[in-house]
């Protein structure tokens, strides 16, 4: 949860990373079940809030965890935190599902993974352990004022433009943008290392 103490956040992030490593190394089903129990219901919420039906949100959450199993060997704990890594899996599945809905192409998610590969070089995070980044991000989020946090959250799972976010929150568009900017600046300041 966002209001966790930083220590809890760090130990959570490290625990999830260890579970993914166990899946990669030993095909550890207990570790997988623990990941499933925590993440699948949250990915389902993420998909529901992005407009997926109850059934397809459930299926997408299952697909996401299947991908966690088969991609665990690609998880690099030095590059991405566990929940950030699982977030990108869910994000790419959502893009894939939206495209299949529009029937524009029967793309596998591999294509979408490629679309997020923008760099030939090493990960941008070198120097700062990913689990550390992850816990710092979570602590940083926990200190954001509610109105800024709400704009950040809506930016992530609501398939709507900022103009519509403005409508939802009944605030002017300029306010959405300025809150997002404030939130980003604050995150930058708290994270320090990423800019």
């Amino acid at each position: 949860m966002l209001n966790d103490k930083p220590d809890d956040a760090t130990s959570d992030a490290a625990r999830w990373a260890a579970l993914i490593a166990a899946v990669a190394r030993e095909k550890d089903r207990e570790a997988f079940a623990a990941l499933f129990t925590h993440f699948a219901p949250r990915i389902k919420t993420f998909m529901r809030r992005s407009g997926a039906s109850e059934q397809s949100a459930d299926e997408l959450a299952q697909e996401a965890l299947l991908a966690v199993w088969s991609k665990a060997n690609l998880f690099d704990p030095n590059s991405a935190g566990a929940s950030a890594w699982i977030f990108t899996i869910a994000r790419n599945l959502r893009i894939d599902a939206l495209r299949r809905e529009k029937r524009t192409r029967t793309a596998g998610t591999d294509d979408i993974d490629l679309e997020f590969q923008v760099d030939d070089g090493p990960s941008p995070d070198a120097g700062l352990a990913a689990a550390q980044t992850e816990s710092r991000v979570r602590s940083a989020l926990a200190t954001l004022p509610d109105d800024q946090l709400r704009v950040i959250e809506l930016s992530f799972f609501d398939d709507r433009a900022h103009a519509e976010i403005a409508q939802t929150l009944q605030i002017p568009l300029g306010t959405v943008k300025s809150r997002l900017r404030l939130a980003m600046n604050r995150l930058r300041g708290l994270l320090g290392d990423f800019s």
């Binding site: 966002l2 993440f39 219901p41 389902k44 919420t45 299952q62 699982i86 977030f87 989020l141 992530f156």
Partner: peptide, 16 residues
């Protein structure tokens, strides 16, 4: 993306 991970983790669970 780490923020996305934080947002995901903080979402309420929907029973599978």
């Amino acid at each position: 993306e780490h923020v996305g991970g934080g947002v995901l983790t903080a979402l309420p669970a929907t029973a599978m």
